[in-house]
Every structure is written in C-alpha cells, then in structure tokens.
Design a protein around this nucleic acid. Structure first.
Length: 467
RNA sequence: GCUCCCUUCGUCUAGUGGCCCAGGACAUCGCCCUCUCACGGCGGUAACGCGAGUUCGAGUCUCGCAGGGAGCGCCA
C-alpha cells in the first residue's frame, strides 16, 4: 500500500496558521515518502460551513504551494456512502438507535457533573434494541466496547492508552441524517486509503473511538500522528489579535510563501541546527517522527528574519512582481516610477516584508508629502548645504552615465573637492530626495528617482532651505 | 470534576547516560563597518520547573509534585 496522508479542514473559517502547518506536515510527509497528499473538505456542519470558507482554504493552500494529489473531496457529496456504512454497522449490532431529547441528554450530563463524573452518554438505549422510527430525536449511536482499553502508537506523542470505560457511545448519525465527525472521518479515511492520519492534537481524545470504529468495521487501522498546537506570542491560544488570521493575510502583510513555509517547518520540527530549508530540503529531511511534543509560540520576529532572508536571496524580477502588487495596494502608480525589480535590489536589506518595502519605495512613485523638519533644519539649512546642492544639481544634470556607480563617484568627488565629509554631501541630498534623513544608499536613492525627478527635488529643496 | 498530553535561554530548538559548568537560531546588549537607515562581522547576557530514586555518573531513565494545555456535543 502506498503512503497517503490527507488534510481535512472544516470550512468554518479561513485557513489559519495552525491549519497551514498541519497541511504542510501532511504534504511534507507524503512527499518525503513518495506517497500522495489528499485534500478533503469536512463540511458536514451545514450550520457553519460556507462556500467562502472553502475558497479561502483553497486559496491559502495554493498560495503556499501545498498542492493536493487528489481532491478536494467534499463530505456532503458522500452522504450515500455514510448511510450505507451506518446501516451495515446497525445491522451487525454495532450501532443502535436512540431517541433521547437534547434536554434529557443535558440533564444527564448535569447530573454526572454534579457527581464529579465525566459527563457522557450513559448508554440507556444501548440494549433496548429500539427499532428505527421517525422521530425528531432519532440518532444512531456507536456501540463502543466497554471492557479493555485502546492502545496506539502515536508517531509524535508515543504510546497512548485510554480505557474503553472512559468512552461513551457517541452519535454516528445525527437526527438530520448527517454523519458526525468521528464517524465520517473513519469512513472517509478508509475509502480514501489514508495510511497516516496527521492532525492537531486536539484530536487525540477522539482517536480511541475512531480506532474502535475501524475495528468494528473489520478495517485496518491507519497510523496516527498528533501535532502539538501553535500558541500566540503571549503563550495563549491563537486569537484574531495575533495570528489566527487567514494565511492570505500574510501575503497582504508582505510575507513570502517560502518564508512562511520555512518558519512553520521549524516551528515544532528541526533538523539539527539548520534554520534555512529549501522546499526540496524540507521534503528530503522531514520526518513526522522528529516533530516535537510540546506546543510552540508563534514569533513574528523570527518570521520577519526569515522573510528578509528570502527577500535577500530571491530573484529580483520575481520579487518585483509581488512588490508591484503591494505598491498598487498603496495606491502608487507603478508605471510612473522605477522598475520594481530594481527597487527590490535597493531595499531588500532594509525591509523585512514586501509591505514595508513598498512603503519605503513610496519616495520614487509619489511626491514628497511630509518633510521631517528636524532633518530639513539640520541638513538643508546647514552652512554650505545650498552650495553643495547647487553643485550637485549642476553635476547630476551633466552626468552621462546615470547609474548608481557614477552617482556614487560623483557624490564622492563633490565631497573631496570641497574638502568635506561624505555626510555633508549625502545628507543634504538625501533630505532633498526624500524629505527625511533616512533612505537607502544615496546613489540608489538618486538613481531610482531618475534624472528629471532628482533635479526637480534638488531645486525644491534649495527653495525650501531659504524659507 | 474526570481522562489524555506537555515542561531546556525571553522565543524556536539541539541534546536518546559520560563528548553538556548545555550547542545553534531569532530577539536583546556592546563593539566594528558606515553618507542616514539597514545589511554584514565580532563579542556579551541568558535555560535543563521542583523533589525523590536508579546509576560510578542524569538535561537524558523511573516515580511523585507543581505548572500549563487539550478533550469530555446530534462542532470538527
């Protein structure tokens, strides 16, 4: 049997960072073992599932490059199959009809809690052999074994054992005819030939029930691997404030898919001291058995560092396309300004995200809107600054080769000729070009502006200096 | 409450009984580089939750405690 994993999100929201990591590990493990990665949408909760959420999940996976070999399959399109298996189990005496009302069930649980017991179904209809009849409260329950215990070897957590006495007869088929999660996953994983179930560790407690179901079906039990959860920076559960946003939000914030993937890979898994992994390396080195046992906090600082790493290592033309997208989002006209690819080269060592880069690139695409008065006073109105600017204006106007190297040499010469430091030349020029005392290397700042704009801004600056 | 799981620097982690008075990375601090901001280089601060036990020897094995988390639905 070939190795098959699946990612099975429920479309009740976007694909958040925890889901993305689960998908990545499933994908990596499948690729590593030369198996298949299947995508399945668990949409049996018709109250909360939405088509928009399905699309958001698909978009997120696509952006990350986690392509599925099969699917997406939708549970709502497999209703006939669930009915068939349910009937089979019921006829074999492994499932039974029950008709307690919600109120009755609630009261039962309350009573148990009052006695300090774990709230669960007490099996009151277990041996009643009730016939199937029309009833708004009709559900089909699984007849869970009562003796012994379920033991399984979790690929990341190790051996886990839970006594059957702790389990109750869970609902397999709801009164509306829809299967419940615990029932549908088993049928699906079985039908889809899943050999390794990799999912969040909030499912550990469901696993024994599912194993009992596999056994009731006389089916082989797949391997299980439960991933520890991802916590917010504050150590608490992820919330909207810090990371429980859709992965597409990461794109909007200027992160690269590879950086997110690399970060997620290292969040809970490691390969010695290695921090940077190409996709190919991740596939080659990843092993679900090497995943850590404990929850990990999400750290934006490290994600930012990784993102900048990929910004510095990536292809400028490629990155330029994505930068153009961010520039447009800022309302900047990419056609009236430098080639984004060149902007990438000038700014990649100064920005951790493409969004920040786009903001810094504003100086080349739009007029200077705000002036840093302190910078103006210090550099534009400094002694000799106007003379320097005038000289710069003349020489830049006559510069034959408009390139960073030539501009750099020119600035250096102006400083040397006047016997002053580079700072006395570069800073006034910088303020003239940007309105602030902070920008990329002066030659890049000037070069990317283009000659016309550069000369215009020097003129404007000289005028401003006299105000 | 019950069941299950987890516990190494601020954070992510290396570590499978001696190689660890604990290594790497991010963050942080200092120095260098320097036209600003960065990048880069060099260096520093900083951790085995607590207690027993096993052993010649424990971050590594066992037990207990404490702390944290998850589950206990006709949600997934």
């Amino acid at each position: 049997m070939t190795f098959r994993t699946r990612f099975a999100p429920s479309p009740t929201g976007f694909l958040h960072i925890g889901g993305a990591r689960t998908a990545l590990y499933c994908w990596l493990e499948a690729r590593h073992r030369g198996g298949q990665f299947i995508l399945r949408i668990e949409d049996t909760d018709h109250e909360r599932s939405t088509a928009a959420a399905v699309q958001a999940i698909l978009d997120g996976l696509h952006w990350l490059g986690l392509d599925a070999d099969e699917g997406p399959f939708y549970q709502t399109q497999r209703m006939e199959r669930y009915r068939e298996v349910a009937q089979q189990l019921q006829e074999a005496g492994k499932a039974y009809w029950a008709y307690e009302s919600r109120e009755e069930l609630d009261a039962m649980r309350e009573a148990m809690k009052a006695r300090s017991e774990k709230p669960r179904y007490d099996g009151r209809a277990r041996d009643a052999k009730l016939p199937c009849r029309d009833d708004p409260n009709r559900v089909l329950r699984f007849r869970n074994p009562q003796a012994g215990s379920v033991v399984f070897e979790d690929k990341v957590k190790g051996r886990i054992e839970i006594a059957n006495a702790e389990l109750d007869d869970f609902v397999m088929v709801r009164s509306d005819g829809f299967p419940t999660y615990n029932f549908a996953v088993v049928v699906d994983d079985l039908d889809m030939g899943i050999t390794e179930v990799i999912r969040g560790d909030d499912h550990v407690n469901n696993t024994p029930r599912q194993i009992n179901l596999y056994e009731a079906l006389g089916a082989p039990v797949p391997g299980f691997a439960h991933l520890p959860m991802i916590l917010g920076p504050d150590g608490h559960k992820l919330s909207k404030r810090h990371g429980a946003v859709g992965v597409m939000q990461y794109r909007e914030d200027g992160y690269l898919p590879h950086a997110v993937l690399n970060y997620l890979a290292r969040l809970g898994w490691s390969h010695g001291d290695q921090e940077i992994f190409s996709i190919r390396e991740m596939i080659g080195l990843f092993d679900i058995a090497d995943v850590n046992h404990s929850a990990a906090r999400f750290d934006f600082a490290k994600l930012g560092w990784l993102n900048q790493h990929y910004l510095k290592a990536g292809d400028p033309a490629e990155l330029g396309k994505e930068l153009a997208w961010h520039l447009q989002r800022l309302g900047l006209d990419v056609a009236h300004g430098p080639d984004p690819a060149q902007v990438v080269v000038a700014l990649r060592e100064r920005a951790q995200t493409l969004k920040a880069m786009a903001e810094q690139a504003r100086i080349w695409y739009a007029p200077i809107e705000t002036w840093d008065e302190k910078a103006v006073a210090k550099h534009l109105r400094a002694d000799g600054a106007t003379d320097v600017l005038r000289a710069l204006h003349v020489r830049l106007g006559a510069l034959e080769d408009w390139s960073p190297a030539s501009i750099h040499a020119l600035v250096g010469e102006v400083a040397t000729v006047r016997g002053i430091g580079m700072g006395k030349v570069a800073q006034p020029l910088r303020v003239a070009m940007t309105g602030t005392a902070v920008s990329p290397a002066i030659e890049d700042t000037v070069c990317l502006a283009g000659r016309d704009l550069a000369l215009q801004r020097i003129e404007d600056a000289m005028e401003r200096a006299t105000q």
